[in-house]
Nucleic acid binder design. Structure first.
Length: 938
RNA sequence: GCGGAUGUGGCGAAAUUGGUAGACGCACUAGACUUAGGAUCUAGCGGGCGACCAUGGGGGUUCGAGUCCCUCCAUCCGCACCA
């Protein structure tokens, strides 16, 4: 029998699907293992060879863990709400659901080709009403909750209302910006509307007016993560600042827990670090500055209260509300002009123009509480309204931005630190270097101590208080789009009310057109009778993309449950994700929001784990390798890079200016980066009548040598490699092995099929252990030899150790070595080959399943148990020890494995060669590292 | 600027706690079998004639360093006026 991979792969894929081999149900008596991939957004382009990389790794772990006796949950689904389908709908009028369905089908076909062991009975799609019913349910739970800082968890809003009725809010410690104090009497006297307005300020899902990233090109608000360099991440449209009413989730209430619990998870350090930076916790002081001649105070936040004696001005963000109140009449016009200018600068300008220093004096002064000296108040756009209090106490001698500003506007600079590194005008400036000077009671202290002392002083005098500040903002939850989850609220009297459970799910209505309305309302403004009970308007915006993905890992546990988002039994059993594989680009988006929702649900006891993802691996991107040829700008001449200089010289052209690069299809280029002229034309119809400067290869073909560049895979670069093509040519098993063999999973690496033949060869060699080249079956039931057992057990040990530390590439190498060694021994023993198949099966399941069945097994190899290695087979009979004198290797000696260290030592010292080097001197030490080396120290 | 990583043959890479650096694969070279082969098999393959020299450069600890420490350099990624 010959190895016919396409037949074998089809056969077993069908078998697995029909027998539901990978269906995972709750089995309390069995240990569980939950291995999860970040589910994909099914784009229209389909999968390229980079996408399955992580899925292959997770599939190997899933199959491996099954063979280790675990009940494995390995699901797959789709993050199906999203912008591209909606964009396509706007252009073509086709409903996003249709586009999505189509893409999804193609994804499934491509995935099925690779032979994954997903339990498809657990598939989820975020755009299904059965799914987003529960996304809406969680949202309403957030809406119906407030964060109690005393119990440090989310609690039902009803508790809060009870408290308000009994004692008002004076004892309530909540996560809110609401600062007014009211009594029980006040509360009970408030109108329904007033009460709801106050409650809205406490809810974990709330509406607020805020400056947002408004993208007119997309007709929607974008999160900070969706904006890159002032333009939208998708589409590259300009983004501007705009104040709008938005739904927000109070993720800031969880800031501390999100930060601290990072210690509980086994994640790549860079991702943890990104989340820490994103949360941006800093300990500082909030200090009040009294405005001269006014009742008002300006609150600033500083981490460097020790530098208070060096403050020479205050600067306010242009958005600061006190500006209007404090500006003196003389300065009014200038200030108005500056504020207007600063506020209207787009995000893009502000980003690209960081270096320009600008600002304006308000004319007002405040008093420094430590010195009683007056300090001028300025406005500067380097002060951000979104961070701290939007006001900064400027210390030009200790902060480079303040220094630049002071220099620019000729403001005084008072040094408060002295010693090496403390001079801000010098290269080696370190803001925390030196000891304090010119600072009253702080003089002579180190910075660290001075901060503590100044903090204490501030609190004792009541000038301010110690405060923890976070960079993280609440998460904007509104998207002015159609293709997302509707927000399950209706508006009465301008205020949102939750939909009753009987109204759930609130299903996305049909509309005729998918763009914003003429009045600028979101697309849902077009929906007919989008009203609760025909009377109260529903919310017009939908939820953001990350809503559905923030809890899907829970739904997989119990995806068809109609009564709950997940049953307690299923949740208790599957618990949390043991291994999560996906890209690190979600570090501050999905991974943070998922943790937030998880913690929220945990607060209510609805789930039992503080953290959703125990261990995570970020797979590296598989990059494309593009191939380029050059075209003369003003003539239809195609030329390769090597000839460029010569050709340019001959025709009096400039190599850098008179040529443009053109991509050619990488799938038509050979392994030496040559492409025939016919193929150039095939990949680019626009070149069908071009003239070519070609060379002739050994077969007489007219070829052009292409330049190769490693970059991201994309359609426009003609460098996309489709896994389907690889599967058709080499088979899925080869693809799987090859993707793992390419290098460490976490690393970025270019797709390069050069060495794929070696992997394909390995599978043929494996097949040859079972069938000879005439097709005769070789396997016999005889007992294996000692040598064969040695090879097997060595392999088992290495394979197991490597897979346990997720080193997939070394595993593939180990298989190759094993098959080579067994091939050399002409091993045909069933006992050996059986164990080998079980080890290789996670990587190359189809061929192993086929060969497994030839060994007489009637059930799938998926139910086989991973072999255990025995130390007794790993012991060598004798060792050859290299002997080194003072670290330099001199010669080798053989010793029996049974010899003890002392007799080895004696033998080494007695050895003729060693004696020669010792020249009669006694050795200082003889170091013997068992199984490794003998080192004699003279 | 701040933070995080990475650096080993022509290439992808191994080397688990410091212990014979370069396993395994590709490419390459020679040979065998072939009408032929993008098939298969065998051998060689870091540099140097050599003693030896080699893990980005320099220094250190150690009997022994790719691995630990210091320092410099290069590349990549993330954040970026965060007070």
């Amino acid at each position: 029998m010959e190895y016919n991979f396409s037949q074998i792969e089809k056969k077993w894929q069908k078998y697995w699907a029909e027998k539901q081999i990978f269906k995972a149900d709750v089995k309390p008596e069995k240990p569980k293992y939950y291995v999860l991939d970040m589910f994909p957004y099914p784009s229209g382009a389909g999968l390229h060879v980079g996408h399955p990389l992580g899925y292959i790794a997770s599939d190997i772990i899933a199959r491996y863990k099954r063979s280790k006796g675990y009940n494995v949950l390995h699901p797959m689904g789709y993050d199906a709400f999203g912008l591209p389908a909606e964009q396509y709908a706007i252009q073509t009028g086709q409903h996003p659901a249709i586009t999505t369905e189509k893409n999804l089908k193609r994804y499934r076909e491509q995935l099925d080709n690779i032979g994954f062991s997903f339990d498809w009975s657990k598939e989820v799609r975020t755009c299904d009403a059965d799914y987003y019913k529960w996304t809406q349910w969680i949202f309403l739970k957030l809406f119906g909750s407030w964060y109690n800082k005393v119990s440090d968890k989310a609690e039902p809003i009803e508790n809060l209302i009870e408290t308000f009725k009994i004692e008002g809010n004076k004892n309530v410690q909540a996560s809110t910006d609401y600062a007014d104090i009211f009594s029980a009497t006040d509360w009970n006297a408030y109108s329904e509307k007033q009460q709801q307005e106050i409650l809205l300020e406490y809810r974990l899902a709330f509406i607020t007016f805020m400056m947002v990233n408004w993208c007119p090109g997309l007709g929607s608000v974008l999160s900070n993560e969706e904006v890159k360099d002032g333009v939208s991440e998708r589409g590259g449209y300009p983004v501007e600042r705009k104040e709008m009413a938005q739904w927000c989730l109070r993720i800031t209430a969880y800031a501390d827990r999100l930060l601290n619990d990072l210690d509980l998870v086994d994640w790549p350090e860079p991702v943890k670090e990104m989340q820490r930076n994103w949360i941006g916790k800093s300990l500082g002081t909030e200090l009040d500055f009294q405005i001269v001649g006014s009742e008002e105070k300006i609150k600033v936040f500083t981490t460097r209260i020790d530098t208070i004696f060096g403050v020479t001005y205050l600067s306010l963000a242009p958005e600061h509300p006190l500006i209007d109140k404090i500006t003196t009449p003389e300065q009014e016009e200038k200030v108005k002009k500056y504020v207007h200018h600063a506020k209207n600068r787009s995000e893009r300008d502000r980003m690209s123009d960081v270096k320009t220093i600008s600002g304006e004096f308000t004319g007002a002064y405040v008093t420094n509480p430590f010195t009683n000296q007056p300090i001028p108040v300025w406005i500067a756009d380097y002060v951000l309204w979104g961070y701290g209090t939007g006001a900064v106490m400027a210390v030009p001698s200790s902060d480079t931005r303040d220094y630049g500003f002071a220099k620019h506007f000729h403001l005084p600079i008072i040094a408060v630190q002295e010693g090496p590194g403390s001079d801000i005008s010098k290269e080696d400036f370190d803001p925390k270097a030196g000891t304090m000077i010119n600072s009253g009671f702080l003089n002579g202290m180190m910075v660290k101590d001075a901060i503590k002392a100044a903090m204490k002083h501030t609190e004792e005098n009541g000038w301010g208080k110690i405060k923890v500040n976070f960079k993280m903002r609440d998460a904007i939850f509104s998207r002015q789009r159609y293709w997302g989850e509707p927000v399950p609220v209706y508006f009465k009297d301008g205020l949102p009310y939750p939909l009753a459970e009987s109204e759930s799910p609130l299903v996305l209505p049909e509309i005729q057109e998918y763009k914003p309305t003429e009045t600028g309302e979101p697309p849902l403004g077009r929906a007919k009778n989008w009203k609760y009970k025909g009377e109260y308007s529903y919310e017009l915006s939908t939820m953001p993309g990350w809503a559905g993905s923030s809890w899907y890992f829970l739904r997989y546990m119990d995806p068809t449950n109609q009564d709950r988002f997940v049953s307690p039994d299923a949740e208790k059993y599957w618990n949390d994700v043991d291994l999560y594989i996906g890209g690190s680009e979600h570090a501050t988006g999905h991974l943070l929001y998922s943790r937030f929702w998880n913690k929220f649900l945990f607060d209510y006891g609805l789930i039992t784990k503080k953290e959703p993802f125990k261990k995570m691996i970020n797979q590296g991107m598989v990059q494309g390798r593009s191939n380029l040829v050059y075209k003369e700008k003003n003539a239809n001449v195609i030329i390769c890079k090597n000839q460029l200089k010569e050709y340019a010289k001959e025709n009096n052209l400039k190599p850098n200016e008179d040529f443009i690069q053109l991509y050619v299809d990488v799938n038509l280029v050979d392994s030496k980066d040559n492409i025939s002229i016919e193929n150039v034309i095939k990949s680019r119809q626009d070149l069908h009548d071009a003239k070519f400067e070609f060379s002739i290869d050994e077969n007489g073909n007219r070829i052009i040598h292409c330049e190769a560049v490693v970059e991201k895979m994309s359609k426009s670069k003609l460098n996309v490699v489709n896994p389907d093509d690889i599967v058709a040519h080499y088979g899925a098993d080869t693809l799987r092995l090859y993707e793992m063999f390419l290098g460490p999973l976490e690393q970025f690496k270019p797709w390069n099929t050069n060495s794929i033949d070696g992997v394909a060869r390995f599978l043929r060699k494996l097949w040859r252990l079972f069938y000879d080249d005439k097709g005769s079956y070789l396997v016999v039931g005889e007992a294996p030899s000692k040598e064969e057992l040695k090879v097997l057990h060595k392999t088992i040990k290495r394979v197991e150790e490597d897979i346990e530390r997720y080193s997939f590439n070394t595993n593939v190498s180990t298989f190759m070595i094993c098959v080579n060694e067994l091939g050399a021994l002409k091993c045909n023993k069933k006992q050996i080959l059986e164990d080998l198949l079980v080890m290789v099966a996670p990587y190359a399941p189809h061929i192993c399943e086929e060969l497994w069945s030839t060994l007489g097994h009637s059930s799938s190899i998926s139910f086989a148990t991973f072999p255990m290695y025995k130390e007794e087979y790993l012991v060598e009979d004798s060792f050859e020890y290299p002997i080194s004198i003072n670290g330099k290797t001199r010669h080798k000696m053989s010793f029996a494995a049974t010899e003890d260290v002392k007799s080895i030592e004696a033998a080494v010292i007695a050895d003729e060669t060693v004696q020669k080097y010792l020249e009669g001197k006694a050795p200082k030490k003889v170091i013997i590292v068992p199984k490794r080396i003998v080192n004699v120290v003279v």
